[in-house]
Simulated scan of single mutants.
Amino acid sequence: MATTVDMAKVGEALKDRRESLGLSQADLGLRLERSQAWVSKLERGQIDPRELSALLLRTLLSTLRWTPEEFVRATGLEFPGIEAEGDEPDVRSLHLEVHRSKERVVLGLPELSTYKPRDLLTFWDRGILVTVSRVDEPVPGEWVGVESAKGQMNLYRLTGYTRQGRPLLEDLDEAIAPLEQGARLVGRALLRIIV
């Protein structure tokens, strides 16, 4: 027998998580390609997350930095294919090319198992192997991958934004500067391995 879920409590859990990450409803809507009004309805329990497309649900979980299991625990919703607590996660190996290199790495980590290889970019920066998600929008405080105008990849910490909306980046030497002209933020760092 299916259990009844209080959608208002589900919405409250979503709102609490969004606010704990410092995101506004407009920020979340932008990342989900939905309006602020749509996010407001979701947080008031007027939209059932179980009725979202798989891609939209994955983007929601990724943006809120929730694993499916954490989402289930926080909201009380059940989704097919999500393991019960204590089950071993299904981990597949990802074969990834290292940017501007002939190297390939094989990664088999649960936190990467929901990504497709095309969603990830792996590169070396001063002895650190970095894998970034091209689909997850970084938030201040997180490590990010940045591609220079010449195609060089580097690891930075996103510290915030200038008044003009340019990302402020802290390098590995702790120097902070705005994103250089012609450079682009590639995505949020999921993995950093110091070799």
Rank of each mutant, 00 (worst) to 15 (best):
H99E: 09
P80K: 10
W38Q: 02
F71C: 06
H95I: 15
L61N: 01
L60W: 02
S93L: 12
G86Y: 05
W38M: 10
S53C: 04
R50N: 10
P80T: 11
T63S: 13
S40F: 03
G45H: 11
P89T: 05
R73W: 10
R104A: 14
L64K: 00
P68I: 00
E51F: 10
P89W: 08
T59W: 01
R31L: 11
E97T: 12
Q46A: 10
G29M: 04
L55C: 02
E70L: 08
G86E: 05
W66H: 00
Q36H: 11
Q46E: 15
S93T: 15
T59A: 15
S53Y: 09
K41C: 07
E88W: 07
P80Q: 11
A84W: 03
D87A: 13
E85D: 08
R92K: 08
L94P: 03
A54Q: 12
L32G: 03
E83Q: 11
A74Q: 08
R100K: 12
W38S: 01
F79K: 09
F79H: 05
L52I: 06
S35K: 02
W38N: 00
P49H: 03
W66R: 02
L61Y: 06
S53E: 13
V105K: 05
W66Y: 14
A37N: 08
F79G: 10
V105F: 09
L32M: 13
R73E: 15
L55E: 14
R100I: 04
T67S: 15
R31K: 14
R34C: 09
R104H: 14
T63W: 00
E103A: 15
L61G: 01
A54L: 11
H95R: 14
Q46V: 11
R65V: 14
P68A: 01
E85R: 06
V39K: 00
P68W: 01
L64Q: 00
T59Y: 02
A37M: 11
L52R: 02
G81H: 05
G45M: 13
V72P: 00
E69T: 14
T75Q: 03
R65A: 03
K41W: 09
T67G: 09
R100Q: 11
S101Q: 12
P68Q: 04
R44E: 10
W66S: 08
L56I: 12
D90R: 12
A37F: 05
E43H: 11
R73D: 13
L30V: 02
E70G: 15
L64M: 07
A74H: 12
A54T: 12
E103D: 15
Q36N: 09
T59N: 08
E78P: 01
L42H: 04
V72I: 06
L64C: 01
L60D: 04
P68F: 05
I82Q: 01
L77N: 05
T67P: 07
L96K: 07
I47D: 05
E78L: 09
V39G: 00
S62D: 15
A37R: 13
S101N: 02
V72G: 03
E43W: 08
T75N: 01
E103V: 06
F71Q: 01
R65T: 06
E69F: 06
